[in-house]
Design a protein around this nucleic acid. Structure first.
Length: 459
DNA sequence: GAGGATGATTGCTA
DNA sequence: TAGCAATCATCCTC
């Protein structure tokens, strides 16, 4: 069966008889009602189609007139409906199957990434979460300042560009879709176009624009990756700590020379003070311990410097503490500063202060330390349970190592205490390790008695 | 630019 | 998992 015949069959009993078309095109007689046979109908339809086909050979005006005539024919909708159905059942059905594509995994990945980076989706501080994550990976607190804000600013720029471009694409897509829809609707008057076909065409357009969008997303992702890697690389760059930070760390190190293992709390405190991370504090102490141990001689000068510096502070702190304790704790005998050796029995805060200052600054010349070991022990007792002034004990305790170091430099510390293994120089044992190196001071420092207040947190 | 200083990383150990 | 030791990579000073 040929196409024309099928069309006619589809039309069923539609009658076109008795209608003339403007422009002189004769319409076929109605079929069936007057007993016309099938061959006759075929012939009529053939004529119509022939006339349609020859429209193009006619003059424009003539063709327009004929076209108009056809358009105005009352059977046109029915004819178009059938033609649309035929179109649906033939070529377009193939496209229909293609529409049900699963979502592109690559597109999904891009979407997820853009969402995670804070580029797409609702604005969440311009990707500060991503920046924070990157910062955490890099492990530097300065992320929160200059570089962090720089990263955020750039990410925000990318986000802005992305959204502007996306908006442009969507606008263009909508405009183009509307345009095509209007065209198709317009054309549907003259050729069989079903609403479904228009829908399909729209979806095709959207797909095309989606591929363009994917390119946009891809390039945006690349930009974010580049920015991120640059940001992380920048963070990886080694930067010297500030002078102040190094001072703080050194002060702690040399004042805890016998056991330079800050507790977690101390590390956090130091990190806070130095505006660095806890891991950087750990790195610093790790490096410092090794380098100090490897070359004590080289660090001696530095040790002296910090020891003296810290000791002066300690002396003032101790004196103030003693004075304070005398005022506030009248029931505490001798303020816990009772030296075992009678020569060290100090009656007043002023005396203690003078003595300590002289001792540390060396203004009294060669200071006589008749029993510096006892003195040290006594000072240690300041941290003991018997002493109530926790802050005092903490302040003094944190300087004990410093005292030892200064004494060793100024008053023959080694000679006086050489026999006492507890006072081996700088806390280093014979194996080149620190006393109880495996036991961090967070547990019990060798210089700290039980119940002592850890200097880390009190400082 | 050389060489030392210094912060970070890595592999290993207890 | 913290710390050690070696090493890398960068900074800083001369």
């Amino acid at each position: 069966m040929d196409e024309q015949a099928r069309i006619m069959q589809a039309l069923g009993g539609v009658s076109l008889a008795g209608h003339s078309v403007q422009g002189g095109m004769a319409l076929p007689p109605p079929h069936g009602h007057d007993g016309t046979d099938g061959d006759g109908r075929k012939q009529d339809i053939g004529d119509i189609l022939h006339q349609i086909m020859t429209i193009t050979d006619q003059s424009l005006d003539e063709a327009q007139a004929k076209k108009h005539g056809l358009n105005c024919h009352r059977m046109k909708p029915a004819l178009f409906s059938v033609l649309c159905e035929i179109k649906e059942k033939t070529g377009l059905s193939i496209r229909g199957a293609q529409e049900e594509d699963p979502p592109d995994p690559q597109l999904m990945r891009l979407d997820n990434m853009l969402l995670a980076e804070g580029v797409s989706g609702p604005e969440k501080g311009g990707g500060s979460a991503a920046a924070a994550a990157a910062a955490a990976a890099a492990g530097s607190p300065t992320d929160n300042s200059i570089e962090h804000s720089d990263y955020r600013a750039k990410l925000s720029q990318i986000r802005q560009i992305y959204h502007t471009e996306l908006e442009k694409y969507e606008q263009a897509c909508n405009e183009f879709t509307t345009h095509v829809m209007n065209l198709l609707r317009e054309q549907s008057r003259t050729r069989p176009i079903s609403p479904k076909e228009i829908e399909r065409m729209v979806s095709i357009i959207h797909r095309k624009f989606s591929s363009i969008q994917m390119q946009l997303k891809q390039s945006t992702c690349e930009a974010v990756m580049i920015l991120r890697s640059r940001f992380l690389d920048a963070r990886r760059k080694r930067r010297n700590f500030s002078k102040q930070a190094t001072e703080i760390l050194n002060e702690y190190f040399y004042s805890h020379l016998s056991n330079p293992y800050p507790s977690e709390e101390a590390k956090e405190e130091l990190a806070k003070k130095c505006s660095i991370t806890v891991s950087q504090v750990s790195n610093w102490f790790g490096n410092k311990r090794i380098r100090y141990k490897k070359n004590i001689g080289k660090f001696q000068e530095e040790a002296n410097l910090y020891a003296a510096k810290t000791a002066v502070t300690a002396a003032h702190a101790a004196a103030a503490a003693v004075q304070n304790s005398q005022t506030n704790s009248p029931t505490t005998p001798n303020s816990g500063f009772q030296m075992k050796d009678e020569e060290f029995q100090l009656d007043s805060a002023e005396n203690k202060n003078t003595l300590l200052t002289n001792m540390f600054t060396g203004s009294s010349g060669s200071f006589n330390l008749p029993n510096s070991g006892d003195m040290f022990m006594s000072m240690q007792n300041l941290n003991g349970d018997s002493y109530q002034g926790a802050q005092v004990g903490a302040n003094v305790q944190s300087q004990v190592d410093t005292l030892r170091h200064v004494i060793s430099q100024t008053a023959g510390y080694n000679d006086a205490l050489g026999g006492n293994p507890m006072y081996s120089p700088h806390g280093l044992n014979g194996n080149g390790g620190w006393q109880d190196a495996t036991t961090p001071s967070s547990v019990i420092s060798p210089t700290e008695g039980p119940g002592s207040v850890h200097s880390d947190t009190s400082n």
